[in-house]
Simulated assay, not measured.
Amino acid sequence: MRAPIGDFTDARPAPDCLDLLTAPVAAAVRTWSGPVPADQLLYVDTDPAIADTAVFVEHHGADLLDASANCVVVAGRRGETTTLAACVVKSATRVDVNGAVRKHLGARKASSAPMDTATGETGMEYGGITPIGLPSAWPLLVDAAVLDTEWVLIGSGRRRGKLILPGKAFAQLPGAVVMDALGLAAT
């Protein structure tokens, strides 16, 4: 099947590709429920060497930039307490870590989580972290612009492969909080 976005000619329903996903992502796809059916979560095989957004878009077409999103793991700290959260914003923007995220988490300081923390806590590969299959106790902050995008390309949990799903599906993920202006214009 041809993907609804991009130049991918071999898009397959993610429930048919569980062996290509990390364990937490596969588990989330297996138990997926809600208004967007699991067969609308599509998996496309991609080259892990071009997983980073800028290179990926250069290779697969600039039109994908507006249809892509990134999932960033953030650590908010207040005193001795650290709270991990995930933020999903469109790829052409950056997460408002020191404004919207810090305020939402009630943290004094917030920053991107260290790579080993992000990968260790999610069970996913750096450069492929996705909001599907994150720890259920984490807040999942989603920029409203992502929901307004018909089809969204995002990581699959691995550097190899991407998921494509309707933007509105992000609102049905566990812990999802939809926020306006979570993504800021990239500088």
Score class of each variant (00 low, 15 high):
A110Q: 12
S111T: 13
S112L: 11
S112P: 00
P114K: 01
M115A: 14
M115D: 05
M115L: 06
D116C: 12
T117E: 12
A118G: 03
A118D: 01
T119W: 15
G120V: 05
T122F: 13
G123W: 09
M124W: 05
M124S: 04
M124K: 04
E125W: 14
E125T: 06
G127C: 03
G128I: 04
I129K: 09
I129Q: 05
I129P: 07
P131L: 00
P131F: 03
P131W: 12
P131S: 13
G133C: 13
G133H: 00
G133A: 04
L134P: 12
S136N: 14
S136Q: 09
A137H: 14
A137T: 14
P139R: 08
L140W: 15
L140H: 15
L141V: 08
V142K: 11
D143P: 08
A144F: 10
L147N: 07
L147D: 10
L147A: 09
D148P: 03
T149Q: 01
E150T: 02
L153Q: 01
L153K: 00
I154W: 07
G155S: 00
S156R: 02
G157W: 06
R158D: 04
R158I: 02
R158Q: 07
R159V: 09
K162L: 10
K162C: 07
L163Q: 07
L163T: 05
I164P: 15
I164S: 01
I164W: 10
L165H: 03
G167T: 09
K168N: 08
K168G: 11
K168I: 04
A169K: 08
A169R: 08
F170G: 10
F170I: 02
L173R: 10
L173S: 06
G175W: 14
G175S: 11
A176L: 10
A176N: 11
